[in-house]
Design a protein around this nucleic acid. Structure first.
Length: 867
DNA sequence: TCCTTGACTTGTTCCTACCGGG
DNA sequence: CCCGGTAGGAACAAGTCAAGGA
């Protein structure tokens, strides 16, 4: 097995490129030692102080450019102005998608209601109603925002689906079935088995506190097993789940992984290659440079850290216990798995806290020192001399001339305060208003232009130069396996670009120096040399309970840290990603009971219980985020638990209108029909309070999560997002695929977008004929076309549509199945991989290179995998 | 129990290389 | 071959959530 190859693989970059069967995964824990440090170390995880790094070597030489220079268009989007409502945004207008979410949520609610409260049949009725409403609301909601954030994930995923049949001309999001409803209602046929049992089991689980193991085990097996057939992964999954649940930190240790690791490894290695082929997952040869490690290989890696030595058992409530049990099951599973790969990734986490045994890396790279340009800005119309430091900061500001930040007083004020410190009290420059940064701005534009004008060769040369300098920083060797590092470049100085109305926007982010940086590295690894002569690291640690390679304190908020982690394609990240999905998957077995429980508590006498019930409902239905408390020096945004009274308006008879700034200050606006008890509860929570008071005054995220954990080990608010998104995708794909529906859906989807365009064009046509100016279209820039031109355009668009449809059918290109980049975080890749296997669709049609790398762990999933 | 710290995930924005059409 | 539109990726802000200490 893989073991032998290690030496080579680690050091040799090219190695990976070949795909052969190179196996280079880490095999058993023991085996993997890093050639560099032959001695394997003990699991001690404490942090030691290391020697400080020696300054010496290479300093980045390129010219200093401050990255701050990004300029730009920036915030033009709605973001800046939360309120924005114009329907004009391209997105809004076109996309059925975007709009849909909101609608969907509405619908969903209804559907869900039926589920929870009433008999299923009622859902039918509701549905029809809901459809209408959808339209109604959709209009309003659309414009509100572009970001999809606002919309429930589930809704987003759904995209369009079945409504078509109902006669709606456009594809409407299939939302009608809320995740819940789907699960419960629709799916029931298939899954019924699982679900039923669960409920019965439910009681037990819930309080499983310490003892635990049983609850989980038993249930789990059943459902999973039945669904997933002999898939190796299944078994593994179980294991993982358990581990997952536990969570990394508290882990108890574990054993579980340790035990079977050996076997797994073997299996995996063998099987992996084969499978891959089948699936046709292949790594692009060219891709090499980036990821050197072929996916196939990666898959093999087994992170299992050996057993973890320490087993800590935490008495964390419920959680820990369940996992342990899993161990047992895991073994079994292993045996029959053919598709082991996924299995391979043994939850190292299982072992408690240890995340790695050996860790070698080169530290971080710093941005080049500032190079002054000497261009003088004007003060009161006269050129001013600035020191390099002063000039550097002035340039940061100058370069942001045409961003929206320049419109914000807070930004200017904060900048001024920080810059003024650099200028000193007696500087000529006494007020920002009299400053004219134009010369610097112009200089910057020129520089940019120069860069653009460079020939391809020059650009290439520069790129190579940079690569050469950075290469050594790009990789780390974790337990003998070469892994890509995520962000090895220290953030350059610049002005803080907080989103929304961030109180600290415009503040100077100082240059980070080696003495600000703490390095985390294996005890026996060579110390990364400090790249700046004469300086040294702040500290060196050897803490194998964490995954970061380095961190520094955020200059804007010294209480916070900026970490350097491994890239998403690394085993370590892949593992935790998988654990995340396993946890979400586990929720499937509990969801029905959870929903039943919270529905019941809508009318609880205990206020806190009622609030928890309603909050959970909102999180489940609307995919709201948990909503932690925030400090005053952060943007004023809210999540579920921090909703204010004024953020929710109850409109008779049972509609709730949400309006608040959520993550990233993106406005969430949504009107939703809810079950009457929820509606009433909200009104109660609001009674006697002011608008700015907390809606859920008895609640915060820790209480909420503590409660969720009683319902399912490891359950937290964010799991609902993952769960609802993944379950929806899974259902969508499975439902649609039978008759090639999915491909069609995509066509429809695209079609809808194009239709939007057509409509606009036709409108313009009419107006043009009447001699009126064209309307502004969604992109905001409407060209003034002659009627003929417009007609031509329409013809073109129609042709495009046709072509697209043809392409779709022939190519069966599914790429667009709503896999937006951010959504990637919520969709279990195994759903997609398994689906591809079943339908012989090359996975690379759907996942791009980086996604393939990131999801290497999912590639060996059994074709029958269901979320 | 509450608050702070720490670690890690999620999400948006910016930038650039690439692609297909004219 | 130029060019506008975009996918993809880097950068980094902003969340979530657990542990640990007061």
């Amino acid at each position: 097995m893989a073991v032998e190859t290690f030496g080579k693989s680690v050091y040799d970059d090219d190695f990976d490129e070949e795909d052969g069967p190179a196996i280079f995964k880490r095999s058993k824990p023991t085996a993997r030692q890093n050639p560099l440090n032959p001695e394997v170390k003990k699991p001690s995880s404490q942090r030691h102080e290391g020697q400080s790094g020696r300054p010496v070597s290479d300093i980045p030489s390129s010219n200093g450019q401050n990255s701050s220079s990004q300029k730009g268009k920036m915030v033009t989007s709605s973001r800046a102005s939360p309120v924005k409502s114009s329907a004009a945004t391209p997105k809004a207008s076109t996309s059925s998608i975007k709009a849909s979410p909101e609608k969907s949520s509405i619908v969903n609610l209804k559907a869900s209601n039926s589920l929870e409260g009433h008999a299923k049949h009622s859902s039918e009725q509701n549905r029809s109603t809901s459809v209408k409403e959808e339209k109604k609301y959709s209009v309003e909601s659309n414009d509100s925002e572009d970001s999809e954030d606002d919309k429930p994930l589930s809704a987003r995923l759904k995209g369009n689906s079945n409504y078509t049949q109902k006669g709606l001309s456009k594809p409407v999001p299939m939302t009608s079935l809320s995740p819940m409803s789907k699960t419960a209602v629709k799916k029931s046929p298939e899954e019924s088995d699982d679900e039923v049992p669960l409920s019965s089991r439910f009681p037990m689980r819930s309080n499983v506190v310490t003892s635990s193991s049983k609850p989980y085990d038993s249930d789990q097996k059943k459902p999973l097993a039945s669904k997933i057939q002999q898939n190796g992964s299944t078994s593994r999954d179980k294991q993982q789940k358990s581990s997952l649940v536990t969570n990394k930190r508290p882990l108890d240790n574990a054993n579980s992984s340790g035990q079977s690791s050996v076997k797994k490894t073997k299996l995996s290695d063998i099987s992996a290659p084969m499978k891959i082929k089948q699936v046709s997952v292949k790594v692009d040869p060219k891709a090499d440079d980036d990821d050197h490690i072929p996916i196939a290989q990666r898959m093999k890696k087994t992170p299992m850290s050996d057993n973890k030595s320490s087993a800590k058992q935490k008495s964390v409530k419920v959680v820990s216990s369940s996992f342990k049990k899993t161990t047992k099951s895991s073994k079994k599973v292993l045996k029959n798995s053919k598709y082991i790969k996924s299995t391979k990734m043994i939850p190292s986490s299982g072992d408690g806290q240890k995340k790695w045994t050996t860790l070698v890396h080169s530290g971080v790279i710093f941005p080049p020192p500032y190079q002054r340009h000497g261009v003088k800005m004007l003060y009161n119309g006269k050129p001013v001399d600035l020191t390099p430091d002063q000039e550097e900061v002035a340039t940061m500001f100058a370069v942001m001339k045409d961003t929206d930040y320049m419109q914000k007083d807070k930004f200017k004020e904060n900048f001024w305060n920080d810059w003024r410190k650099l200028l000193g009290k007696n500087h000529v420059i006494q007020s920002l208003e009299k400053c004219d940064f134009t010369p610097i701005y112009d200089w910057y534009q020129q520089e940019k232009e120069k860069k653009k004008q460079m020939t391809t060769e020059e650009k290439k040369a520069l790129k190579e130069e940079k690569l050469k300098q950075e290469e050594k920083y790009m990789w780390a060797i974790v337990d003998g396996v070469k892994e890509k590092v995520g962000n090895f470049r220290v953030e350059p100085p610049g002005l803080f670009r907080g989103r929304g109305e961030h109180p600290k926007m415009g503040k100077l982010k100082n240059r980070i120096r080696p003495s600000d940086i703490t390095i985390n590295i294996g005890k026996d690894a060579p110390m990364p040399e400090c790249p700046i002569p004469g300086e040294s690291w702040k500290e060196v640690r050897h803490d194998n309970t964490v995954t970061w390679l380095a961190f520094w304190n955020d200059p804007i908020n010294p209480k916070e840290f900026k970490y350097v982690f491994l890239a998403a394609s690394s085993t370590l990240k892949g593992q935790s990603d998988k654990e995340k999905y396993e946890k979400a998957r586990m929720l499937k077995d509990y969801i029905q009971n959870i929903r039943t429980a919270y529905t019941k508590n809508f009318t609880s006498k205990d206020v806190m219980k009622r609030q928890i019930a309603v909050a959970t409902y909102l999180i489940d239905k609307l995919a709201l985020r948990a909503g932690n408390e925030k400090d005053d020096d952060e943007a004023d945004t809210v999540g579920c638990c921090t909703l204010k009274v004024e953020n929710v308006k109850a409109v008779a008879p049972n509609t709730l209108e949400f309006n608040f700034l959520g993550k990233d200050s993106i406005r969430y606006e949504n009107k939703v029909e809810v079950e009457l008890p929820v509606y009433k509860a909200i009104i109660q929570f609001q009674a006697g309070k002011r608008g700015s008071d907390d809606l859920f005054d008895e609640l915060d995220t820790s209480k909420l999560n503590a409660h969720l954990k009683e319902l399912m080990p490891g359950l937290t608010a964010k799991v609902f997002r993952t769960y609802n998104a993944s379950i929806t995708l899974d259902e969508m794909l499975n439902r649609g695929t039978k008759d090639g529906d999915v491909a069609e859906k995509i066509v429809v989807y695209q079609h809808a977008n194009k239709e939007g365009l057509l409509k606009e064009l036709k409108t313009d046509l009419d107006r043009a004929r009447k001699g009126k100016p064209p309307l502004k279209n969604s992109d905001g820039k409407r060209r003034n076309l002659s009627p003929e031109a417009i007609e031509k355009k329409i013809a073109q668009t129609n042709a495009k549509i046709e072509k697209m449809e043809r392409d779709m059918k022939t190519k069966e290109d599914l790429k667009t199945v709503a896999l937006g980049t951010s959504k990637i975080n919520y969709l279990d890749p195994r759903i997609t991989v398994a689906w591809c296997k079943r339908h012989e669709v090359p996975i690379e049609k759907i996942f791009n290179k980086s996604l393939l790398a990131k999801f290497a762990w999912a590639m060996d999933v059994d074709p029958d995998f269901r979320f």
